[in-house]
């Protein structure tokens, strides 16, 4: 039961957290890459799927669900903070 809950937790974290990190990364890179803005958006969107795969692999490779939550959570905070600094939420 505990095992199943942990697996379910990882699945949810991989999907929502992976997509969240990929999205934040895309938004941040779209605003910060030193390119014309359409180019920055295109490049950021192009790599977002690789970022999501990496995040999913990380969630399932982490030693415990807690570690994965902390890892993805702090990464999201960093990306979100960066986005806030460049007025991405304006």
């Amino acid at each position: 039961m505990v095992y199943r809950a942990a697996v379910a937790g990882r699945v949810v974290l991989a999907i929502l957290g992976g997509y969240g990190v990929a999205s934040l990364c895309t938004a941040l890179l779209s605003l910060t890459l030193p390119l014309v803005r359409s180019e920055a958006v295109t490049l950021a969107t192009l790599v977002s799927f690789a970022i999501m795969v990496a995040a999913v692999v990380y969630v399932f490779a982490a030693r415990s669900l807690g570690r994965a939550v902390v890892g993805l959570g702090s990464l999201s905070l960093l990306l979100g903070g960066g986005l806030w600094l460049v007025n991405g939420f304006a």
Partner: peptide, 12 residues
């Protein structure tokens, strides 16, 4: 891609 991850277009 722009449908799945529109957040770059949203931001920029």
């Amino acid at each position: 891609a722009p449908m799945y991850v529109p957040w770059g277009i949203t931001a920029a």
